[in-house]
Design a protein around this nucleic acid. Structure first.
Length: 277
DNA sequence: CAAGGGTCCTGAATGC
DNA sequence: TGCATTCAGGACCCTT
């Protein structure tokens, strides 16, 4: 499931390949995943240039000439990559963007359809909600002090808090488990009961983890590929996620899997034993 | 405010 | 072998 490192990897690829390219073809094949009707979408995109690509939390942003942004929420199986115009269109393709002078089209495909695409910004039509408004601070942009303020004020369990995009955006299930493991914090710990040292540790573990994952091109555990269709390499570095029953790489204890806030949660019961509720 | 459950969706994995 | 069931997840909804 694409999270911050995957969104960052995709955005970098798109920025490199699409900046300055003009959109000449817009095909919205599944209208229900967009905030606008195909007709409006086409009107607002066709003939305009992509000025840059970026990311906020796990969302990938395509900046469109004139001030609008295309916001891609990848859900769990969303893919956004460049495909040669000669290739056969894969199944579950929901959007195709063609560009002037490019032999590749940008396609968005999403078998499970948890993803969506919103065009937001100054020129979007009435009622177009801004998919970005509700997001909290970006996990890689927020300062240590901001992180401390957000976490220490909440009485919630730390793992659901890390996953709450309105508090901090960017972490999904994989990186939440992995950064709690790095920080040796039990996923059920109440955020406000962690001391300053533990929260500090968590903040730096999170940053370090995300930066390492980005440098490895993200994690491919199911469908994720980058803007060029390449898989990530960070999944082999996961210490707890998807490793139920395997020995902890630090202490050798078996990794366990429990449910926290409805999510599968992996951790080492020995390394992450303190502050258990 | 926090927590739990249900909903959407499809492909892979498992069960009988 | 083949069919049915279970599971996975992000974001949203609702109730307690």
């Amino acid at each position: 499931m694409p999270e911050l490192p995957e969104a960052e990897t995709i955005a970098r690829g798109l920025s490199r390949h699409l900046s300055g390219k003009r959109i000449v073809q817009v095909r919205a094949l599944r209208p229900d995943i967009f905030n606008l009707r195909p007709r409006s979408l086409k009107k607002l995109l066709q003939g305009r240039m992509i000025t840059d690509a970026g990311r906020l939390g796990k969302k990938v942003l395509l900046e469109v000439e004139g001030g609008n942004k295309l916001v891609f929420s990848l859900g769990m199986s969303g893919q956004l990559y460049l495909l040669s115009v000669k290739e056969v269109l894969p199944t579950h393709t929901h959007l195709i963007l063609g560009f002037s002078g490019l032999k590749q089209s940008l396609i968005f495909r999403d078998p499970r359809r948890f993803g969506r695409i919103d065009l937001v910004g100054r020129n979007s039509v009435k009622g177009a909600y801004t998919a970005l408004d509700k997001l909290g601070a970006d996990a890689l942009s927020l300062s240590e002090d901001e992180f401390m303020a957000i976490t220490s004020a909440r009485k919630r369990q730390i793992k659901p808090l890390l996953l709450d995009q309105t508090c901090i955006c960017g972490l999904g299930n994989i990186y939440a488990d992995e950064c709690l493991f790095r920080a040796r914090i039990h996923p059920l710990s109440r955020a406000d009961e962690l001391d300053r040292g533990e929260l500090r540790h968590l903040y730096w573990a999170m940053r370090e983890l995300l930066l390492e994952a980005i440098s490895e091109g993200g994690s491919s555990i199911s469908d994720y590929v980058d803007a060029s269709g390449e898989m990530g390499r960070f999944q082999v570095r996961h210490k707890v996620y998807g490793r139920e029953g395997e020995p902890c790489p630090v202490c050798g204890e078996r990794i366990v899997k429990i449910r926290v806030g409805g999510r599968g949660t992996h951790f080492c019961p020995r390394c992450q034993s303190e502050a258990k509720p």
